[in-house]
Amino acid sequence: GNENPLYEHYDKILEVCKRFDVTISLGDGLRPGSGTDANDPMQIDELLIQGELVQRARNKGVQVMVEGPGHMPLTQIEMNIKLMKRICDGAPLYVLGPLTTDAAAGYDHIAGAIGGAIAASCGANFLCYVTPAEHLCLPSIDDVKQGVIASRIAAHSADVAKGLPLAVLNDLKLSQARFNLDWEKMFDYMLEPELARKRKNESESNTDDYCTMCGELCAMKTFRETPN
Rank of each mutant, 00 (worst) to 15 (best):
D37Y: 11
K82H: 11
R58K: 15
G70I: 08
R86A: 10
A57I: 03
R31K: 14
G33C: 04
D89C: 00
A91E: 10
G33I: 03
L96N: 11
G51K: 09
K18A: 09
M79R: 13
N59V: 01
F20V: 07
D102R: 02
I49T: 11
P69W: 09
Q55D: 13
H71W: 07
F20I: 03
T23F: 02
D102P: 10
S25L: 14
D37E: 15
Q50G: 04
F20T: 04
T75R: 15
P73R: 07
D89W: 00
A104G: 08
T75G: 12
Q55T: 13
Q63I: 00
D37T: 05
P92R: 03
L26T: 06
Q63H: 12
C88R: 06
G27M: 07
Q63N: 14
N39A: 03
L96T: 05
E67P: 12
P32V: 00
V64W: 13
L30A: 09
D37W: 07
G61H: 04
G90F: 05
D40R: 10
Y94T: 10
E78A: 12
Y94I: 12
P73K: 06
N59I: 00
A91R: 07
V95N: 09
E52V: 07
L93Y: 15
E78D: 14
G35H: 01
D89R: 03
R31C: 04
